[in-house]
């Protein structure tokens, strides 16, 4: 399973490196979202600083949709997914590999978005441990959940429009938990940030487990 996961993750990351969709399209999209939030909300920097955690994670959610759609679009083109099924790879390995590739892409985008909120919103980064722990578990949860719903929608002709409808409501706990934890880390709240990290970790474990167990069946139906 782990060998298959490494093979799939390597393949997906190589495709992204060659196509440069993540660097030339998704990353600029993420920055544009941050900038537009700045335009739409008050030019008052203090409000943007307060809203920065929420805006950051909304931008991450949008980027995760693009990453997941891209992950399954490459399998739909020229029936590459049939080749994947014919390879006899462990479906759990395929799930873990695709989720890992999405997670790594999201991690890179989050690094970029972090620079973005520092530059555009003048956010002062504090509580590095909580920030990083939150980002890690939230990213894993988003990637696992997105990959699971991605394969669910993969076989449908309306997958591009259906995927956001499926994913966005389900990842609401990630948006809430990650935003609250980052508010604590950035000194905007006196709440216990680590309890939100625990919630995010539970979300990630649930969706990784569901993915490992159900991905094979969903892939056959795709």
């Amino acid at each position: 399973m782990w060998r298959d996961a490494a093979l799939i993750a390597g393949k997906d990351l190589r495709i992204e490196a060659r196509s440069r969709v993540a660097t030339n399209q998704v990353a600029p999209f993420a920055i544009i979202v941050l900038v537009l939030f700045g335009f739409a909300l008050e030019p008052d920097r203090s409000f943007l600083q307060t809203a920065a955690p929420g805006l950051f994670w909304v931008a991450v959610l949008f980027c995760s949709l693009l990453a997941v759609q891209r992950s399954f679009a490459v399998e739909a083109a020229d029936a590459a997914g049939d080749g994947l099924r014919m390879s006899g790879l462990d479906p759990a390995g395929i799930f873990l590999g695709k989720a890992a590739a999405v997670a790594l892409e999201l991690a890179a985008l989050e690094a970029l978005l972090t620079i973005g909120i520092v530059v555009f919103y003048s956010t002062a980064l504090t509580g590095a441990a909580l920030l990083l722990a939150t980002a890690a578990v939230a990213t894993i949860g988003l990637a696992a959940c997105g990959t699971l719903y991605g394969v669910l929608a993969a076989g449908l002709r309306v997958r591009e429009t259906l995927l956001p409808l499926l994913i966005l409501p389900v990842v609401a706990p990630v948006l809430i938990g990650a935003t609250r934890a980052w508010e604590v880390a950035l000194g905007q709240s006196l709440d216990d940030g680590w309890k939100w990290v625990t919630l995010l970790a539970v979300f990630a474990v649930v969706y990784v487990t569901l993915g490992v167990l159900a991905f094979g069946t969903l892939l056959e139906e795709a």
Partner: peptide, 10 residues
């Protein structure tokens, strides 16, 4: 099959 199951970006 009719399709070649290749990844365009590889």
């Amino acid at each position: 099959g009719h399709a070649t199951a290749l990844y365009d970006d590889l």
